[in-house]
């Protein structure tokens, strides 16, 4: 059993090594880390608060002297601080909603794949049905009708994004369930639930990590889309989507209010997509012969 779980890790390690060997992905990782650190260190970096208004500097352009590094908006709020705090919310939504989709998707896919037969058919048919739904419309309805609660955003967005994960996990589980270590566990009398929990899921790690890195940007995008329509995060909190929405209204007189939040949002999405792509290539069985 330890041999098996080590194989899972070593696959992951191989992926990490090939990932770090590429200059471009290393840069993306570093950039990612910088954005995360900046959002965490926001209060230390600027004298301004998220909703403090500086009436001497209303809609002023970026400047070092006034400590408004990214300028201010039409009520004198500091864009630098707001962008970083907004980033916290965007990243938080990205991570938590991805976790929601991860849990649903992995369990759904693993159970369907492991059970096989009727159960599998029924569960995957349900996934097919859900695929055809215009989900954004449901999310919009949810946000309009049930208030713009941030936890609802996590759940709604996560509940929308688990379908791909379920399909991929099912495929992997199918290919794994007749392998020797699973047969051995079954012969040893381990219960089905424990086989899924202790033997199948740990071995899905590599694939799941790739899709997590690709799901996070999708989720951040959905949240910012909602916030852009005014249906996501509400004042005094903010997110990159909400900031872009504010900035778009002011772009003719104060383009920096649009530019900086949009830059942070796009850079973050870019890094996640890039890392996810790199990981997927690294783990692609067609390229790495010898990996089973």
């Amino acid at each position: 059993m330890t041999g098996v779980s080590q194989q899972g890790h070593s696959l992951f390690r191989i992926a990490m090594r090939s990932l770090l060997s590429s200059k471009a992905t290393t840069t993306a990782l570093a950039l990612m880390a910088i954005v995360v650190l900046l959002t965490l260190a926001a209060p230390l970096l600027s004298p301004w608060d998220i909703d403090s208004t500086d009436w001497d500097n209303v809609a002023t352009s970026p400047s070092i002297e006034t400590a408004h590094y990214f300028g201010t908006d039409d009520v004198g709020r500091d864009i630098f601080v707001r962008t970083l705090y907004g980033g916290r919310i965007s990243l938080l939504v990205g991570l938590s909603a991805t976790m929601v989709s991860l849990v649903i998707g992995v369990f759904w896919g693993a159970i369907a794949g492991y059970a096989g037969g009727r159960t599998d058919q029924l569960m995957m048919r349900f996934v097919d049905v859900m695929y055809a739904m215009p989900f954004m419309f449901f999310v919009i309805l949810l946000m309009v009708f049930f208030g713009r609660n941030i936890f609802l955003i996590f759940v709604a967005v996560g509940a929308v994004n688990w379908l791909d994960m379920a399909r991929i996990v099912r495929g992997q589980t199918l290919s794994m369930k007749h392998r020797e270590f699973v047969e051995a566990a079954r012969a040893g009398g381990v219960s089905n639930l424990n086989i899924i929990r202790r033997h199948i899921i740990p071995n899905l790690l590599g694939v799941v990590i790739v899709y997590v890195t690709l799901t996070i940007p999708q989720v951040i995008l959905v949240e910012s889309f909602l916030s852009f329509l005014g249906l996501g995060v509400q004042e005094p909190m903010t997110s990159w989507g909400a900031l872009v929405n504010d900035g778009a209204a002011l772009m003719e007189s104060a383009p920096w209010t649009l530019f900086f939040p949009a830059l942070f949002l796009a850079a973050t999405l870019f890094c996640f997509n890039f890392i996810g792509d790199g990981l997927r290539d690294a783990l692609d069985p067609r390229d790495s012969a010898g990996e089973s």
């Binding site: 995008l221 910012s224 989507g241 929405n245 772009m251 796009a266 999405l269």
Partner: peptide, 14 residues
């Protein structure tokens, strides 16, 4: 990759 990462609602105002 940039095109995939920049959302419609950023492109449109720009």
């Amino acid at each position: 990759m940039t095109g995939v990462s920049v959302p419609t609602f950023v492109i449109a105002p720009l």
